[in-house]
Structures are given as structure tokens and as C-alpha cells.
């Protein structure tokens, strides 16, 4: 594949948090390529570094966090590619990028909108921030966008305050804020976790519809295997700050190779699939990120672990870009 086909290439990204004297390696060498116009799912347990990866892409890390190593190459369609990791958090280039070229929507729509401003004003502000546009045109674009996101009576509802909206409606407003500037990449950090299941489906469907119409790329972060099965083209499985397995959706679901991915798939219910099977939780808990085991980080919980696993396993291609970080990936014990 051509380099230009990847909108984002992350190479060996390391993001650390310094808390007192402790250093937490939240992201520890992530390498990822995101295909333009496709949807990439980033899955993993809580605390595995998914959100930190996303925040590193936007350089929206809290004060204690910083990118220590690696590059994040962003290739916008109409301008020069650049390495996001090379700029300072407050750099003008990044401020212009945020919201204009890369947008982000957050987990909790309830608190992602400012309670004291009308929702219309909040959406309009994200246009005005990046474009010179007349008030009238901005209002029209806002109403059009909300209508696309099927908010009824959008021209009236832009005058409402956030507390007058339900959770699902607020998330639509957030999506509208993210998409109104026509970004090339939308990062959705657990966009439906705070919503109930029926609304979840609606929001995900809307995101897919918008993607078809506007052609942006989505990185969706979730711990819900159902959502990635539904939405994603490519899936990256993360564990303790590293990508354990990466591949096309079919590879991950039909040919899961890393023991962690397999364990993860066994631990979630699949509708209409062996109703009497018991779910198998992954034994043990995630290790303390400031005190990581040597070698493979999944070793303490892995059924296949051997002496070999005390050395860090390589990140290898097992065919067609299906990448796995395990000693037993290539026809080893993992494929029993």
C-alpha cells in the first residue's frame, strides 16, 4: 500500500505520566497505520492505554503526561504531512489542527457541552474558530448539520440549552460540533459508553451514515467487541500500552491469533452463538503499569506462557498485514 493511503501513521509511540517519582508508561511503543476513509477500532480493557493513545494524537494530554518517543505522522489531503509528536502542545499548528483537521468526541455527552451556552452557539463557535464566515451562513450550516443528524426541528432546537437535551441528543450535538468543520479524521473516545443500548445503535449508525456522506476517517475507541464488529474495518487490540494484535476485522474475529485476543473474544457474549456456553473471564488482573513484568506483558495471565515469554516477543506479520505480538503467533501453540 502507498504511504498516502494512510491518513495517520504512528511509529513506536511512547507516552508517559510522571506522578511524583513514579513513571507510568501508559503507551509503550504503539505502532499503527490508519487507512484513509476507513474505520479503525481500538479495543482493550480499561486502563490499557486506548484513551491515552487517542489523546496523544491530539496532544491533549494532561500536564503530567508527555510523549517521550515516537512519531505521529498525519497526512492531510490538501497540505503537507507533519509529525504531531514534534510540536508543542500549545503550538499554533496543533491548535489549528484540532477541530479543523482532526476532531474528537468524548465519552460523556452529559458533561461535554457547556451548560451555560445555547447548543447552537457552541456549534457555531467551532466553525468561527477555524473559518471566516458570516453569522447567517454559520447558523444555516449548523441547522443543516443537525438535520443531517436527524434532530427534529433543528432550527428551533439550536436555541436550547444542553439541559434541555437528552443524552443521545447531546451526543448528536457533539458529533455535529466535531463534523461541522469537515475534519478528515474523527476520533471517537467511547462515544456510546454513557448511552443506553438502543441509543447506542442509533448513534453508531449515524456515524456510519455521516462517514459515507462526508468520507472522513474514524478511529473508534471502545471496550465493546460488538461495536467494533459492527463499525470497524481494521481492529487493533491493545494491552498494557502495546498493540497485541492488529488486522482486518475478519482476521481478528475469524482468525484471532494472540492469546489475549482469543481470551477477550471468549469473555464476551455473542448473540445466537451457543446459548449454553459459559463465558470465560480472563484470569488475574492487569499488572500495575508502573511495575510491568519483563518480557511479554500478558505472560502472567496467559495459559500458553513458557520460559520463552520472559523475553519481549516480536511484533510480526502473520500474513496480509495481520500483525501479532506473540512468540507463538507463527503456527505455534496459539493455533492449536
Amino acid at each position: 500500500m502507498n504511504k498516502q493511503d494512510y491518513i495517520l501513521s504512528i511509529n513506536d509511540l511512547k507516552t508517559q505520566f510522571k506522578i511524583g517519582k513514579r513513571v507510568v508508561k501508559a503507551v509503550d511503543g504503539v505502532t499503527l497505520n490508519v487507512r484513509r476513509g476507513k474505520t479503525m477500532g481500538l479495543v482493550g480493557e480499561s486502563g490499557c492505554g486506548k484513551s491515552v493513545t487517542a489523546h496523544s494524537i491530539m496532544q491533549l494530554l494532561p500536564k503530567a503526561g508527555s510523549i517521550k518517543e515516537g512519531e505521529i505522522i498525519f497526512r492531510p489531503q490538501n497540505s503537507e504531512e507533519f509529525d504531531i509528536a514534534k510540536y508543542r502542545k500549545t503550538d499554533k499548528k496543533l491548535r489549528n489542527m484540532r477541530g479543523r483537521q482532526i476532531s474528537m468526541i468524548f465519552q460523556d455527552p452529559m458533561s461535554s457541552l457547556n451548560p451555560v451556552y445555547r447548543i447552537g452557539d457552541q456549534i457555531i463557535e467551532s466553525i468561527i474558530q477555524h473559518e471566516r464566515i458570516s453569522k447567517k451562513a454559520a447558523i444555516k450550516r449548523t441547522v443543516d448539520m443537525l438535520e443531517m443528524l436527524s434532530i427534529p426541528q433543528a432550527d428551533k432546537r439550536i436555541m436550547d440549552y444542553p439541559h434541555q437535551f437528552s443524552g443521545g441528543m447531546k451526543q448528536r450535538v457533539m458529533i455535529a460540533m466535531g463534523l461541522i468543520t469537515n475534519p478528515e479524521l474523527l476520533i471517537a473516545d467511547e462515544p456510546t459508553t454513557a448511552l443506553d443500548v438502543t441509543i447506542q445503535a442509533q448513534i453508531l449508525e449515524l456515524m456510519q451514515q455521516m462517514q459515507e456522506q462526508l468520507g472522513f476517517t474514524i478511529i473508534i475507541i471502545t471496550h465493546n467487541m460488538g461495536i467494533v464488529a459492527d463499525m470497524a474495518d481494521d481492529i487493533a487490540v491493545m494491552y498494557m500500552g502495546k498493540i497485541m494484535e492488529f488486522g482486518a476485522k475478519e482476521d481478528i474475529f475469524l482468525r484471532p491469533t494472540h492469546p489475549y485476543t482469543r481470551a477477550l473474544l471468549k469473555s464476551v457474549p455473542v448473540l445466537g452463538n451457543g446459548g449454553n456456553d459459559r463465558l470465560e473471564p480472563i484470569r488475574g488482573t492487569t499488572p500495575d503499569p508502573s511495575d510491568m513484568p519483563e518480557g511479554c506483558s500478558f505472560m502472567p495471565r496467559c495459559d500458553l506462557a513458557t520460559e520463552k515469554c520472559k523475553n519481549a516477543p516480536p511484533y510480526e506479520d502473520v500474513g496480509n498485514g495481520h500483525m501479532v505480538r506473540c512468540w507463538y503467533a507463527k503456527g505455534g501453540a496459539a493455533n492449536e
Binding site: G99, R100, S103, F106, S111, S126, H130
Partner: peptide, 25 residues
């Protein structure tokens, strides 16, 4: 609050976040 994070994600500057978005609250 996450609306402040959202403001950052939309490229809004620090002073504007402080005085225009947080202060009215």
C-alpha cells in the same frame, strides 16, 4: 469537566476557555 477538554479538542485557546467558557459557570 469534559466540556473543557472538548473546547481544547476544537482548538479553542486557553484564555478563551478560561474567560468565555469556564467563567460564566
Amino acid at each position: 469537566e469534559s466540556f473543557v477538554e472538548a473546547c481544547r479538542a476544537f482548538g479553542i485557546g486557553n484564555l478563551s476557555i478560561a474567560f468565555k467558557h469556564i467563567l460564566p459557570n
